[in-house]
Design a protein around this nucleic acid. Structure first.
Length: 892
RNA sequence: GGGAGUUUAGCUCAGUUGGUUUAGAGCAUCUGCCUUACAAGCAGAGGGUCACAGGUUCGACUCCUGUAACUCCCA
């Protein structure tokens, strides 16, 4: 079979993925083996694959493939999240393009469109994951709005309501005027913006001259002002507390009050209090018994509804329906016109924006459903302890602090959203607003009867006046059940699957959703399954571009992943994203890393080509690869050494490092050293035993690399030999002891080869020119076994052992041995001297630092004995080397 | 404003309880090679006052304090 010049991934990837699928390798059913379970963080159902998913899922695939090869029952569950607000936003936009507005549609009609949309675009991302080689158990694909899942979410809501943890209340919420819904604190993103600080004067109500000036960034809320507040220790204003001033335009009389909350240094030191439109003002309002006057509607437009106690003039009436930002300018102008605007300053402020729509958030008083988190956490002390005590291990551990900090400052969770796409809140209301919580309408009537008594209509018919809450639940209120409900742990408690797979083993997710999701899954785990949801959590950072910027559509710096896979191959993409991605740190994505991955594929591919050449030239000898004993035993040990290292690194989730070590083992140790060492001369035969050993090494290398780069390794595994098994389900052999002595001899050999090659380079000896090497060493015995490799690698025709310096040669010292090189080239005596002197200076400097330590009495008295031994050995070594170099210098 | 984290070669990162030959990789750079698997390659080389300033210690990249810059989270 003729192999292509370079590795061509496209066909090979398709071939192996379907082969693995056809053999059901990714399927998992409970059995007697240890389970290794990962639930995939469900991407948005309408999402497409981006770099973040790529990183995330590559890591999960590495972990799951390794577990599979360790003989564990590996189960990786795919799925998607209905992503309430994100999806609804998309559906609304799609309808708008077709000329339909949401308000024209009934809930049922809208949901029909949404489901159609979901069927059409949902799960594209899952198909894309197959291209990356992800070994997911596709039969277990779940969706957070599957019928059972939906029921479970409702059941949990009812349970928590019964326990008094979920309640309904009028609270200040983060209101997104674009999607007209409340948001949780976690969905609000603070951004720095350039704004203006308006200095507005409120004249005194008693007609006396002057007034009080406040600085505000939000003049549009002035009509909702109910007080002015100053710090009671602020001498400028002490005498004014209790006085009345007039709100401009609306001419409402309000009081000046005092409260420590106000910072005297900010603005003018006087604060306008608008309880309906600011969280802090709302607190202040409650404390001082102030009314909250709402002047903005759910779309952020001016409304007169709550101003019935005020005298409305034409100006105010003209504001009705004006958007908040237009209103800001308008009111500022109108105040200026009546001489109330003192000045305007540029000001940098932070405003909250909606994570999904980007709209500026309004604080708004609203009736919403909340979860009392403090109370909930108190039901199970393990929730906080699990992470602190490392029952659940975070990688990197520093994420523990973030978790603890949030737990300690936890606030109530607003779980209702004014959206239709999601689990509808199971609360039913009568005309007066009295309500019951129940899993369906029938039960709701039963409940109602129990709670509020029978009701009948005027005409005596059975009363059917209950209406279900229009709102749905926050998406995270369903995804926090993910690790248990993908195994039907709530809808079908204690079934075989959930008993076997739960708690899951490892969760891989972004640090940015530690509160949204990770913490809440921990809570749900302990609250509803009485145990942790997972054992380890591996946090990935954010994928940024080369310049460290976030990837975003606006910047256009987000690469098309499928295109990259097409260009470089999935293995190369996996390699590129993994080679420099420390746990928990952001990774800077650089396409050159993908090139490196592609080149790595080619390197391995070419090694296969070399072996295929040898295969045809095998000869059977009974020498038992005598000539190559050193090369083979050295590589065998080196391989085993790295296997152990990699194993330890992976146990500690050091994935990048493990990949680096494997990369170097294959490229440097195997290709650059080992293959060159056993390589026969031009068109010479190779001993069959050596060939077979080499094939076996190569196969083991492929095993080691397989979790990282599944396609190319599977392909090479099969190219090397005809096999019945596949690498995908191959089980790793038990670790083997390594021989340290041969490893150090190998290191010595490499060192000498590099050193002598350097000498050749510096003396401009052409690669093809052979040299004669005279070696002066105290340990000729070691060199005997590596001599032939050495000769081959430095193109030496002979190696002669000598006891004295050889005149007319290039002299060099490597370690403790001297080498004299005979060559046709003219000798560069000065250059040699310079090199030796440089080395000598370095050693002398080193010696001084060691001697300084050793002559320090306190060091000798305090240092541990083993440190002392090392220092003494350093000194002896340095002295010996210095002697050897000085000796050589004399002879030049 | 409060909290957490980061700062080591041009870039991306290692550096495990303070002592392991006066700091290690990979990429990039430079020099020489189209050598017979591989120029998407081979061989070799150069490059760092470990952010700054103090302190603890016989000894600090490592521990402590402060400063600066950046990142994230919370208000």
């Amino acid at each position: 079979m003729e192999l292509t010049k370079n590795f061509e991934p496209q066909e090979i990837e398709k071939k192996w993925y379907s082969h693995w699928m056809n053999n059901g390798y990714f399927k998992s059913v409970p059995d007697g083996r240890e389970a290794y379970t990962i639930v995939m963080p469900p991407p948005n159902v309408t999402g497409v694959l981006h770099m973040g998913h790529c990183l995330n899922n590559t890591i999960q695939d590495i972990l799951i493939r390794r577990a599979r090869m360790q003989g564990k029952n590996a189960c990786w569950v795919p799925g998607t999240d209905h992503a309430s607000i994100a999806t609804e936003t998309k559906v609304v936009a799609m309808l708008r393009e077709r000329g339909i507005t949401k308000s024209q549609l009934s809930r049922e009609e809208f949901l029909k469109y949404a489901w159609e949309w979901k069927e059409k675009y949902g799960g594209i991302i899952l198909e894309q994951l197959k291209k990356m080689g992800c070994s997911l158990d596709w039969d277990r694909t779940s969706f957070t709005m599957d019928a059972d899942y939906y029921k479970s979410v409702i059941e949990i809501f009812i349970r928590l309501h019964k326990d008094g943890i979920i309640y309904r209340g009028l609270r200040m919420v983060n209101w997104d005027p674009a999607s007209k819904t409340a948001l949780s604190d976690e969905e609000v993103i603070f951004k720095d913006v350039d704004s203006k600080l308006y200095y507005v004067t409120y004249p005194f109500a008693d007609g006396s001259a002057g007034g009080i000036t406040v600085a505000t960034t939000r003049p549009e809320t002035i009509l909702g002002d109910v007080a002015i507040c100053v710090n009671p220790t602020d001498e400028r204003y002490i005498s004014l507390i209790g006085k009345e001033v007039i709100v401009p335009i609306i001419n409402r009389k309000i009081k000046i009050i005092g409260d420590e909350y106000v910072t005297a240094e900010f603005g003018t030191g006087a604060l306008k209090v608008t309880p309906a439109h600011d969280k802090n003002d709302n607190e202040l309002g409650k404390k001082h018994n102030l009314k909250a006057l709402n002047t903005l509607d759910e779309e952020g437009k001016f409304t007169l509804e709550e101003l019935e106690d005020d005298l409305l003039n034409d100006t105010i009436i003209s504001y009705a329906g004006v958007d908040r930002f237009a209103l800001r300018k308008k009111i500022a102008l109108d105040i200026e016109a009546i001489g109330g605007l003192h000045k305007i300053e540029d000001y940098k402020s932070q405003v909250g924006t909606s994570e999904r729509t980007g709209a500026v958030i309004e604080s708004r008083l609203s009736l919403q459903w909340f979860m009392d988190m403090k109370k909930f956490i108190a039901t199970n002390p393990d929730i906080a302890a699990a992470v602190a005590d490392e029952l659940i291990k975070f990688h990197p551990t520093k994420a523990k602090n973030t978790y603890a900090h949030w737990m300690n400052n936890i606030k109530d969770w607003c779980i209702s959203r004014q959206l239709w796409w999601g689990q509808q809140i199971p609360a039913w209301y009568d005309e007066e607003g009295k309500f019951v919580v129940a899993e369906n309408e029938e039960k709701a009537y039963e409940e109602y009867l129990k709670k509020h008594g029978a009701k009948s209509t005027a005409s005596g018919e059975v009363w059917r006046g209950l209406k279900q809450d229009e709102d749905c639940l926050d998406t995270w209120f369903s995804s926090w059940l993910w690790p248990m409900e993908v195994f039907k742990g709530i809808s079908n408690p204690n079934n075989e699957d959930v008993n076997y797979y739960y708690p899951t083993t490892t969760l891989v997710t972004g640090q940015d959703i530690i509160f949204f999701w990770v913490a809440r899954m921990v809570m749900a785990g302990y609250a509803f399954k009485q145990t942790q949801p997972f054992k380890d959590v591996y946090f990935t950072g954010m994928v940024r571009d080369k310049q460290g910027r976030k990837m975003s559509k606006q910047l256009g710096n987000s690469p098309d992943l499928l295109l990259l896979i097409e260009q470089y191959g999935a293995d190369a993409v996996r390699f590129g994203i993994m080679i420099a991605s420390p746990a928990g740190n952001d990774i800077l994505f650089d396409e050159s890393a993908l090139e490196q991955g592609r080149n790595f594929n080619n390197k391995m591919w070419n090694a296969v080509k070399l072996l295929k050449m040898w295969e045809g030239r095998c000869e059977i000898l009974d020498t038992k690869y005598e000539k190559n004993t050193f090369a083979i035993t050295w590589f065998e040990n080196r391989l085993n050494e790295v296997c152990k290292e990699v194993n330890e690194m992976l146990n500690q989730f050091k994935l990048s490092e493990a990949l680096k070590v494997i990369y170097s083992l294959i490229w440097d140790d195997f290709c650059s050293w080992y293959l060159e060492w056993v390589k026969p001369g031009f068109e010479q035969p190779i001993e069959k035993a050596v060939y077979e050993k080499t094939v076996s090494f190569f196969s083991q290398l492929m095993e080691l690399l397989h979790p990282f780069m599944p396609f190319v390794t599977e392909e090479i595994y099969h190219l090397l030999e005809d096999r019945k098994d596949d690498l995908c389900t191959h089980i790793y052999a038990a670790p083997v002891q390594v021989d340290k002595k041969i490893l150090s001899e190998g290191a010595l050999l490499k060192n000498i080869i590099s050193g002598l090659r350097d000498v050749r380079n510096k003396n401009q000896i052409k690669p093809k020119e052979t040299i004669k090497v005279h070696m002066q060493t105290a340990e000729a015995i070691i060199y005997k076994s590596i001599e032939s490799i050495l000769a081959k690698q430095i193109n030496a025709e002979t190696i002669i052992y000598v006891n004295d310096a050889v005149a007319g040669t290039i002299t060099t010292v490597i370690g403790k041995d001297k080498f004299y090189i005979e060559t046709e080239q003219p000798l560069n005596v000065a250059g040699q001297k310079e090199d030796l002197e440089k080395e000598l200076a370095h050693l002398k400097g080193f010696l001084i630092s060691v001697e300084k330590k050793l002559s320090n009495e306190k060091f000798v008295a305090n240092a541990k004995p083993e440190v002392l031994v090392v220092e003494n050995k350093k000194k002896a070594d340095a002295l010996e080397k210095i002697g050897i170099i000085e000796d050589s210098l004399k002879n030049i």
